[in-house]
């Protein structure tokens, strides 16, 4: 299922995938996420002699409001790319631009602040806090922003309604199915109203049917937000506007999902 609110032709021309990045031009007003010649290696510490290159010279742009799939087999570097865009990792080389801010120039604290205010994360294993109700889990990110408890509860309830869990608000994660837990995680990612949503294998723990529904829901609830979904589930990519393919840490192929059929 292709997303209804896909970027306009004009936008698409600006967010074309870039293979080398040398002749690339960005327009900050329309580009939500931009990676330029990003390289990241693991195991570069002094005690580890062998290094693994997770990303090599990867460049791409994602337009504001675009839903992009980051596809590739395990170990291809999709999660690393999301972690770098989310400010959880610093690349060894290259620049990462999120909403007009160069993440590589920010300190760890500033990256955390940017994540708090502008980025929502959805994880494969949900990572809900087991002793908190669904509503409290969703409200969690608002604590750091100093939102009052009443307002936190109100907004969490609103989001849970949107993901169809209005009758499960006070349930603990252990009382919810996998699909329901992931819907709670989606609500948590969106509760602080971020401009960018990063979903790392959001269907990895779900059966195919449930996974597809969760992805549809994610894209639907994300509305006009920029969404990057890392997955190895090709079928789930039907909900995206465009696909970026990674293999062994390198960008191999990119294009609109419909173009690949």
């Amino acid at each position: 299922m292709a997303r209804n609110s896909s970027p306009t032709e004009n936008e698409r021309s600006r967010v074309r995938p870039i293979s080398g990045g040398a002749d690339r031009t960005m327009e900050p007003s329309s580009v939500a996420v931009g990676c330029e010649r990003v390289t990241h290696e693991y195991g570069t510490g002094s005690t580890v002699s062998r290094t693994v290159t997770a990303l090599r010279d990867v460049s791409f742009e994602v337009a504001t409001g675009e839903v992009v799939g980051l596809v590739g087999p395990s170990g291809s570097g999709k999660s690393t790319a999301l972690h770098i865009i989310g400010g959880l990792l610093e690349p060894n080389n290259g620049t990462v631009d999120v909403l007009g801010t160069d993440l590589t120039a920010l300190s760890g604290a500033k990256r955390t602040r940017l994540r708090r205010d502008h980025i929502g994360f959805v994880f494969q294993q949900f990572h809900l806090l087991p002793a908190l109700s669904a509503r409290d889990n969703v409200a969690l990110p608002l604590i750091e922003r100093g939102v009052s408890r009443r307002e936190r509860q109100r907004r969490a309830a609103e989001l849970l309604e949107q993901v169809g869990l209005d009758d499960r608000m006070d349930h603990l994660p252990s009382e919810l199915s996998g699909g329901e837990q992931q819907r709670v995680a989606i609500a948590r990612a969106l509760v602080a109203d971020p401009e960018v949503v990063l979903a790392d294998e959001p269907t990895g723990e779900l059966d195919t049917g449930t996974g597809a529904r969760v992805l549809e829901l994610l894209v639907d609830v994300a509305d006009e937000r920029t969404v990057l979904i890392a997955t190895h589930d090709e079928r789930a990519m039907a909900v995206t506007d465009r696909v970026l393919r990674l293999l062994d840490g390198e960008m191999r192929q990119a294009g609109q999902f419909s173009d690949e059929q």
Binding site: A109, R115, R116, D117, R188
Partner: peptide, 11 residues
């Protein structure tokens, strides 16, 4: 603790 970091809780 990692989740707290990912959802924007400062160090």
């Amino acid at each position: 603790i990692a989740v707290f970091a990912a959802i924007g809780f400062s160090a």
